[in-house]
Design a protein around this nucleic acid. Structure first.
Length: 260
DNA sequence: CGTATTGTTATATA
DNA sequence: TTATATAACAATAC
């Protein structure tokens, strides 16, 4: 599930409930999600301390620790989430790490455990973040155009490449290109000024709306609302949508609005 | 039993 | 050197 808007929602969960509160308990229910540390290391880094204002870069959530030169990074893979619960909320099957506070619990929940938590010792040098492109939210039209012009690959593969732009995933990639009326296999470096302008406008609009609700909205007026229908129709023109694997990902587009 | 899955990465191939 | 394809990771759902 998690793309940039989802992670922004998780960042808000941490900021609104956990930031500034003393961490009373750290329960590692599944050590498999820990990277660069173990249960003891995580507990020693966090117990008695507080989370600082959390930041986000692309799909990474960056949680500094007050008074400590360590930073906790979250990456949610395909199925991770961060939820706030009461102390007596029932244990969830996929809770992997639980942080206890006086006012409740912050839980890292994840079915597939493809990613997880990283404890980084040096706040100034987040190794896991080193290769990322600029965050999609902070990208101007001209910067986006420059990045796209440097890639000879397909525009969808380029947009969703975290080393080019950080934060766009499979669903947002399809949604943006559908709005910009570009075929996902169009070569990124062959887009015209108008193409880049439409891609940028679509990206800004989709991100703004997604961030507001903390997810990629599956609205009927969006392409995303129809991608799982076996023979869904384009919400704009009614044409039956096309499906294929492009760049190794399930891809949906409208053959009429987005011709090759 | 087969298929599929919103993320990332290593490896092989063109 | 670049881009693409594939499998792998893990745990399901259909």
């Amino acid at each position: 599930m998690p793309e940039l808007p989802d992670v922004e929602g998780f960042r808000r969960v941490l900021a609104e409930h956990a930031k500034g509160a003393t961490i009373r308990k750290v329960d590692v229910l599944d050590r498999q999600v820990l990277h660069g540390t173990d249960a003891t290391g995580l507990r020693e880094a966090l117990s008695g301390n507080r989370f600082a204002e959390p930041r986000r870069h692309g799909k990474w959530l960056i949680a500094g620790i007050d008074g400590d030169r360590q930073t906790l990074l979250f990456h949610f893979g395909m199925t991770g989430e961060l939820v706030w619960t009461e102390h007596d909320a029932p244990a969830h099957r996929y809770d992997r790490v639980v942080f206890g506070f006086d006012s409740g619990e912050l839980r890292y929940r994840d079915l597939r455990k493809l990613k997880g938590l990283w404890l980084e010792r040096e706040p100034r040098d987040h190794g896991e973040l080193a290769g990322l492109g600029p965050d999609a939210c902070l990208l101007s039209r001209d910067e986006l155009g420059k990045l796209l012009s440097r890639s000879r690959g397909g525009v969808k593969a380029t947009l969703t490449d975290q080393a080019v732009v950080a934060g766009l995933g499979n669903l947002l990639g399809d949604e943006i290109l559908w709005r910009a009326r570009l075929h996902p296999r169009e070569r990124a470096d062959r887009l015209g000024r108008g193409d880049v302008t439409r891609v940028h406008a679509a990206m800004v609009s989709v991100l703004r709306q997604g961030i507001r609700v903390g997810r990629v909205p599956p609205r009927p007026s969006w392409l995303t609302g129809h991608r799982n229908e076996p023979s869904g129709h384009c919400p704009r023109c009614g044409t039956v949508l096309s499906h294929a694997r492009i760049g190794g990902r399930a891809t949906v587009w409208c053959p009429r609005c987005q011709p090759v």
